[in-house]
Write a protein that binds this DNA or RNA. Structure first.
Length: 615
RNA sequence: GUCCCCGUAGCUCAGCAGGAUAGAGCACAGGAUUCCUAAUCCUGGGGCCGUGAGUUCGAAUCUCGCCGGGGACACCA
């Protein structure tokens, strides 16, 4: 863990305040903050300590600020402490304190910014969890990137993180997938696409083919290769059916004169799910997203997880048979009172109680999700985080209620919602349609603009803000493309270091011991301050569960660096490498190396690869 | 009708758990640039932070109402 100049100073200020006001309540002390003021002319740091303590201390804030300023001035790192405004104390720090952060960065490397904030708390971050019913498209992409970056961020902030994917391999969706795969199999094995066109198939089997995309052709082929004609549907001839066969046959098909065994459907479904998951994992790998754990919904259900969770809730007195009120406002046309098994979600802040079983007694999706969360609680996670699409926003309260109920309020659930991404090319929206060929897959997107551009761009907006993804802009090499701007800063750093090394390898050796007194220019000091604030940014972003802040930090850092670089164009004495000033050169190279290190540290959180040069 | 999210410069968006004179990029206006550190740079104008109250030393930030935009609203997943 790297020492953090901000937390260090906060402790000092709190200590000084406590000495000044001995009986100050701890709550007041906790509200004391030390942070860089908005307006840099106010100094390096400002504290609200006197404002916070004025009331409990029964002292005028300005007066307390003056006393505090005097006390803080005694600290070796503080060179100036002045009361200001309504009761702030502005602090100017010894510039050496700032410069001393440079070797701290160089010694820590990319670990600079790691924090103990999370205190090793076990956190489970679940994201992507796309249904295994087809390849990933751009809609899934944002959640994948946000989730992965958030998990990385929490790891950096000191949490013990498990990255998890919940596979929705139970329920009607994958059943429909099974049918579609079976249909593709029939076409493959009979080699007759006309005979087995979609409409004819639906009529023969009395079912609906929801998934007609080409991506299931490979599944059909695989089934055909493995089973040949073994699992083929058969037209029923008089007297051919054994009792055993009618039991295992899919009834609507049977009625229509076709034999389709349900275990064949299971096979088709399992094969399809396995192949889709393999493809999804490939896509994720392409995006650089990895998960530690894949949890199967089906496995949870088959292991009795749903019943166990409901039983547990029942033991807590949170389950009952009841009838829900119709929703306020517009009542659905087909609404009728139904008695169902309900979970008392209202006891945990939800608006209404939520159904655990449908009126026919089968489990709801919600019930399965309870098992999923029970599974997490059982594994000992103290904090659960989900990344969901914004269309699932209505689901948050009931899930939070369940987690609170299952864990007796010990485990927290945070849900990060991600808004829609609209892909744009040449000013025109790129249409997404699952049915037609204009389906923009994640894989296509990565092929088009590259993985790093995709990941970075997905983090340039707050997760719950809608985003336009402009295919032309994200590969543009200019100031207004943040991906380029940040990468370019890193490449420039590396270029300088390479050049220095080529000139004289001794220049770049042991930079963490280089004297830094030559770093005096305001642009250099601004860059150092930015670098020093990286640990603080990590903690703030992790606390808020907002990985996009890392992208913004990196843009600011890159900007500080580019400003310094540009100053060297006008004023050659500010260039990094100056043959006539070896000591200044060493100091600046140390700063450049530290800048590159922090950029790498930040890009690491985002899962973006830093480049060595722009080509 | 209920719940959730959003409303900040002409545009796209930040705003760090309430702080001092609200920021950045684009666009706009003026200026610099035979540099070699290519993929520009510097300066400037521009704002009732949707609106009305409240909380307090202090509100873009927290609370409530209203206006406007988006989303979700028995048994689907």
């Amino acid at each position: 863990m790297t020492e953090n100049i901000f937390t260090l100073l906060t402790q000092e200020v709190r200590g000084a305040l406590a000495a000044l006001v001995p009986d100050l309540p701890p709550e007041a002390l906790a509200r004391v903050q030390v942070e860089p003021p908005r307006d840099a002319t106010h100094g390096d740091m400002a504290t609200n300590a006197a404002l916070v303590a004025a009331k409990p201390a029964r002292m005028a804030p300005q007066k307390l600020a003056a006393a505090l300023a005097e006390k803080l001035l005694a600290l070796p790192m503080v060179v100036e402490a002045t009361p200001a405004g309504p009761g702030f104390v502005n602090l100017r720090l010894d510039e050496d304190i700032w410069r001393a952060q440079v070797p701290v960065v160089l010694r820590a490397g990319e670990a600079f910014g790691n924090s103990t904030l999370g205190a090793g708390v076990r956190a489970n971050v679940e994201y992507v969890s796309a249904n295994p019913t087809g390849p990933m498209h751009v809609g899934h992409c944002r959640g994948a990137v946000v989730g992965d970056a958030l998990a990385n961020l929490m790891i950096k902030a000191g949490y013990d993180v498990t990255k998890e994917y919940y596979v929705n391999d139970a329920g009607n969706q994958v059943l429909a997938l099974g049918w579609a795969a079976y249909w593709r199999y029939l076409r493959a094995v009979t080699l007759d696409a006309d005979e087995w066109n979609a409409e004819a198939t639906e009529q023969r089997f009395g079912t609906t083919l929801q998934y007609r995309g080409d991506y299931l052709v490979a599944v059909g082929d695989a089934l055909a290769e493995r089973f040949g004609e073994q699992i083929m549907a058969r037209r029923i001839e008089p007297g051919m059916l054994a009792a055993e066969e009618t039991v295992s046959a899919f009834a609507p098909a049977l009625e229509r004169g076709w034999l389709v065994r349900t275990n064949w459907l299971d096979t088709a479904r399992e094969t399809a799910v396995a192949m889709m998951m393999a493809e999804i994992r490939e896509d994720l790998a392409k995006l650089g997203v990895t998960h530690d754990v894949f949890v199967s919904e089906r496995a949870l259900v088959e292991a009795g997880g749903v019943d166990a969770a409901i039983t547990l809730l029942g033991e807590k007195g949170l389950v009952y048979q009841g009838v829900l009120e119709p929703p306020k406002g517009k009542t659905p046309d087909d609404w009728e009172p139904r008695e169902q098994l309900l979970f008392r979600a209202t006891s945990f802040g939800d608006e209404v109680d939520r159904p655990l079983r449908k009126s026919d007694g089968t489990g709801t999706y919600f019930a399965n999700d309870i098992a999923n969360h029970q599974h997490k609680v059982d594994r000992g996670f103290a904090e659960l985080v989900h990344v969901w699409g914004a269309d699932h926003g209505g689901y948050v309260k009931r899930m939070a209620a369940v987690v609170a109920a299952l864990s007796d309020r010990r485990v927290s659930l945070d849900v990060v919602l991600t808004q829609i991404v609209q892909v744009v090319k040449g000013g025109e929206p790129v249409r997404m349609s699952k049915r037609a060929g204009t389906y923009v897959t994640l894989s296509d997107l990565i092929d088009e603009v590259g993985r790093d551009a995709v990941r970075f761009t997905m983090l340039t907006r707050k997760a719950d803000a809608q985003m336009e993804f402009d295919l032309d802009k994200v590969v543009e090499q200019s100031r207004d493309n943040p991906v380029f701007y940040v990468q370019y800063a890193h490449a420039r750093c590396r270029s300088v270091l390479r050049q220095a090394e080529a000139t004289d390898a001794a220049l770049v050796a042991g930079l963490d011991a280089a004297p830094l007194d030559a770093l005096t220019d305001p642009a250099e000091m601004a860059l150092i301050r930015r670098i020093a604030s990286w640990p603080r940014s990590v903690e703030a972003a992790a606390t808020a569960r907002e990985p996009h802040r890392i992208a913004f930090f990196l843009q600011d850092l890159a900007s500080d660096f580019h400003v310094l670089w540009n100053r060297g164009r006008d004023d050659s004495t500010l260039r990094f490498i100056r043959a006539e000033e070896p000591e200044a050169t060493r100091a600046r190279l140390a700063l450049v190396a530290a800048t590159a290190t922090v950029i790498r540290s930040g890009l690491g959180v985002m899962g973006v690869t830093p480049v060595e040069e722009m080509r």
